[in-house]
Design a protein around this nucleic acid. Structure first.
Length: 334
DNA sequence: AAGACGGGGTA
DNA sequence: TACCCAGTCTT
């Protein structure tokens, strides 16, 4: 299929471009596999600009696997607050414990062993292997998927089995045996800076002469999505003497995080109504004043100047309601 | 193969 | 609005 792509020339053009144009992202300045793992987990479904400050703070707070392994889950979730997909934080915590314990704090080098760490899938295992250990193993993230789909003019949806296999196969064939690290970084960076989802800069592309896409902006193709569905969420605002009653989430979504207590039978007008998107839902959050303590399980009083890790939409609601009462915003980042 | 899982950015 | 993002896990 891609026998027609002259690999040596392709690599040379791409890597030359990367050496000149690649960004000095924090996780590119290290080969510490732990730092690479932290960055890769944070970057799952999350944009670079969002991750950078979280990554810097995290590495200050948890500089190595032992430190993270010993930390409490509360501290871990707090450092993750606002990034979303909180199971990533719990998995990273468990991965650190596995490395600190089972592997005697020596980060495993073998792809299959890395792949067994919690929260580490095919992509992340390959990323650690290639970025930290310079191994020649393919990595296909959203950037590289887009670059390769255009390069091949791949019409198969990239989120289908067949499409995915075509991409991983091509990624493996294209990369060099030596210095795979810089090649994979370059392919990814090309997707981030030049081969962008909208308005790709084909005029600036170092490998445009190898690209078969006739309509690059129409690629990559994806399977159709579900329609968004409206959901209702009713909560209580119970505030007294600079303390607020919060409920800790125990089931899947936002597990471990704190939110406003759920209200099963709201009455009267809400103090506040807001909307937030979530996967293919649109949630309407209504917050009601309630005098009676909705004595639910997992509820606790928290001082508003020392709030725990909270679900972002609930934290915003709390900040708005407190501001109305003349109480200072509970979190500086708001 | 399809859904669940967050949140912020962008057109 | 809808789509996008250095994906993984469960069903």
């Amino acid at each position: 299929m891609n026998d027609e792509i002259p690999r040596a020339k392709f690599r040379a053009s791409l890597v030359r471009w990367f050496r000149k144009n690649g960004r000095d992202l924090p996780w590119r300045l290290t080969r510490d596999p732990y730092a690479v793992l932290v960055s890769e987990i944070m970057l799952q479904q999350t944009q670079v600009a969002t991750v950078i400050p979280y990554f810097e703070r995290w590495m200050q707070k948890f500089p190595d696997t032992q430190t993270l392994a010993r930390a409490s889950e509360t501290d871990v979730l707090h450092a993750w607050q606002g990034l979303g997909y909180y199971s990533r934080a719990r998995n990273l915590h468990r991965a650190a414990q596995a490395i600190a314990g089972k592997y005697n704090a020596i980060f495993p080098r073998e792809l299959d062993v890395i792949r067994e760490l919690p929260g580490v899938g095919r992509y992340t295992a390959g990323a650690v292997a290639t970025f930290a250990f310079d191994q020649a193993t393919p990595v296909v993230d959203a950037n590289i998927a887009r670059v390769l789909a255009r390069l091949l003019d791949l019409q198969t949806p990239v989120d289908s089995r067949a499409g995915g296999e075509a991409l991983w196969k091509t990624a493996g064939e294209l990369q060099p045996k030596r210095e795979a690290r810089i090649f994979n970084s370059a392919l990814m960076e090309l997707g981030a800076l030049v081969c962008t989802p909208r308005a790709p800069k084909c005029g600036q592309c170092p490998v445009a002469k190898f690209c078969r896409a006739t309509n690059p902006e129409s690629l990559p193709r994806k399977k159709p999505r579900r329609k968004t569905v409206e959901l209702l969420e009713n909560c209580a605002f119970i505030f007294s003497r600079d303390k607020i009653l919060l409920e800790q989430q125990t089931n899947s979504r936002w597990r471990g995080l704190w939110k406003l207590p759920q209200l099963d039978a709201p009455n009267g007008e809400p103090l506040l109504q807001s909307h937030y998107p979530f996967t293919h839902h649109r949630v309407r959050l209504s917050v009601f004043a309630t005098s009676k303590k909705a004595a639910r399980a997992h509820c606790k009083w928290h001082a508003v100047d020392a709030l725990p890790a909270m679900a972002a939409p609930h934290l915003r609601a709390v900040a708005t309601l407190l501001a109305k009462r003349g109480v200072a915003a509970p979190v500086a980042s708001l």
